[in-house]
Design a protein around this nucleic acid. Structure first.
Lengths: 128, 128
DNA sequence: GATAGGGCTTCCAGTCACGGGAAGGTCAAG
DNA sequence: CTTGACCTTCCCGTGACTGGAAGCCCTATC
């Protein structure tokens, strides 16, 4: 299977798949003409990566998750720890964004939004 | 005033201030020895930038906000529009993260986290 | 056999907002 | 005169790609 077909089936741009090969996440062999040749197992792995990325896992996390996935003797505790740490990071990020959101929403609410120059948003940014 | 002092007072690393000069956000004159010389107005502007960045505004947004701030004939509607668009982006981001968070939290809850290999997290990633 | 097209290859550069670190000039204190 | 803190420029690295150029490969059509 060539890269275009794999891209469709795994739900990843061909560019991304090439990048994943660059960084060693997949290592498809080559045909005589130099084209990458993918098998089902590689497609499966790429779809796994696509889903892990969609959940926000970093590439390095993905590397670990793939390794655990391919290790029959893994402990689920190891997987859970990776996921929990990521969950914590997501929570931190959400909290940070909600902080910004609260401040910003309040400022927006206070701004008349007309053609006059007076603006509480700029006033806040200017004075802290 | 030299860059170190400004960095303290504006709450920005010196590196960042130099970067802001690179991209034209500030243009401090130079002393005979080549050192950047800052005045109060520049410090004020950098503090403004620091607060805008802390609210998550992009550098390009900051450029616009500074221009509006320095324009006595601005319309507050212009400021409000920039802020509202940014607010919308924050909301989108929060929604996206909360989606990830929900899925991930459910998977983590279902994972035993012991020394056995069976793991719903990996199963989900593998099968979609 | 020539040509058109689509797909594949590599490589390079850009993204965003800096941060790290090297090599070297400047200044005030002891 | 030296030490050490400050300042300068310059270049590379970050994360995870994305865009684009230049060129090879394969099939189909005329």
């Amino acid at each position: 299977m060539n890269i275009g077909e794999v891209a469709k089936r795994a739900g990843l741009p061909a560019k991304t798949i090439r990048y994943y090969e660059d960084i060693g996440l997949v290592t498809p062999p080559r045909d005589a003409n130099g084209y990458r040749r993918f098998r089902e197992s590689e497609v499966h792995k790429l779809a796994f990566l696509a889903r892990a990325r969609a959940l926000g896992f970093s590439i390095e996390d993905c590397r670990v998750l793939v390794a655990l996935y391919e290790d029959d003797h893994r402990a689920s505790a190891d997987v859970k720890r990776v996921a929990q740490e990521h969950l914590q990071q997501i929570d931190d990020k959400i909290a940070q964004l909600q902080g910004m959101r609260a401040t910003l929403a309040e400022l927006v609410d206070c701004c008349a939004g007309d053609d006059r120059p007076d603006c509480p948003i700029l006033r806040d940014l200017a004075t802290g």
